[in-house]
Design a protein around this nucleic acid. Structure first.
Lengths: 150, 150
DNA sequence: AAGCTGTTGAGAACGACGTCTCATTCTCAG
DNA sequence: CTGAGAATGAGACGTCGTTCTCAACAGCTT
């Protein structure tokens, strides 16, 4: 899915504060709460974590709404799905560039890492055996700062 | 459940051909078929794949039996579970040393790689931010030899 | 050979996760 | 302000991987 027909000169009075949501996606308080929750998180969140955090912002938020919005926002390119081994799907805001995640063995929290990717050298390479590498998924495990000092 | 009272001098005549299964684990044809299927596979298998392959060796094999044996064999240390992002649990024989897996985007098959681990340098390191690395999971994606030529 | 007991197959049952329905509410262009 | 239709909440429902149940079977020891 390429960039899309951006800049086709259709002014349409872009309202202030609006992200870059698709034409008929309304700015509901629930949707904003969900995006805010994802923005403020230290790492990708599961749907239930989104419900918890966004529910604290927007009271009465329902799980179905969370699922619907996560799907819609992913479709719209606002957020991306993150899959970790043996975990349910998580989501984080899109546009944060290539990075990997760290999962704490103790608190089970997942964090976004700023560390340079040690696997980049393999991109595009064809490994002995004939495996053509086009992508990779790396997750680091261990103790997060909090659990290390706690 | 710790190791138990091992080595209490109870020779018990270890029969030939027997792997190193625990005392009261019987060598049923089903169990052997499952181990054989895992041994001959190019990579870790899901329970259903085990059923397919082992079922071709031992006719009438049931899914419950596969699950029971995978759990028992893992417990016994004969096989290990392999978790890939967004996939159901897979199993492969134990004792193959540190390695990673390749998943084909086309045929969705998973293969064991012999390539040297590019992430080993991070083991034991504490990353900026205070994340203490104790382990990692790496999966490469792309095209397998078959799908590349096909 | 015989018996003890671990093991099996088939299908029901389960739990986690996610989707659907529908009456109601809310956003936003006109 | 108002109407059209997108969005919501609550819960029923569906899916899928896995476990349980139980009568029959089959390793293994004696």
């Amino acid at each position: 899915m390429p960039g899309g027909a951006r800049g086709t000169a259709q002014p349409k009075q872009a309202r202030a504060g609006r992200g870059r949501l698709p034409p008929d996606m309304r700015r509901t308080s629930q949707r904003r709460a969900i995006l805010q929750a994802l923005d403020e998180a230290p790492g990708p969140l599961t749907p239930h974590q989104v419900l918890e955090r966004a529910g604290a912002i927007q009271d009465g938020l329902g799980l179905a709404t969370v699922y619907r919005n996560l799907a819609a926002l992913e479709e719209a390119g606002e957020i991306v799905a993150v899959h970790l081994p043996n975990e349910t799907r998580r989501y984080e805001p899109a546009g944060r560039g290539h990075h990997h995640h760290f999962r704490c063995d103790r608190c089970e929290g997942v964090f976004e890492l700023a560390t340079t990717c040690p696997v980049a050298v393999l991109e595009g390479v064809t490994l002995p055996g004939g495996f053509e590498v086009r992508g990779h998924a790396l997750t680091l495990y261990g103790l997060c700062p909090d659990c290390r000092s706690g």
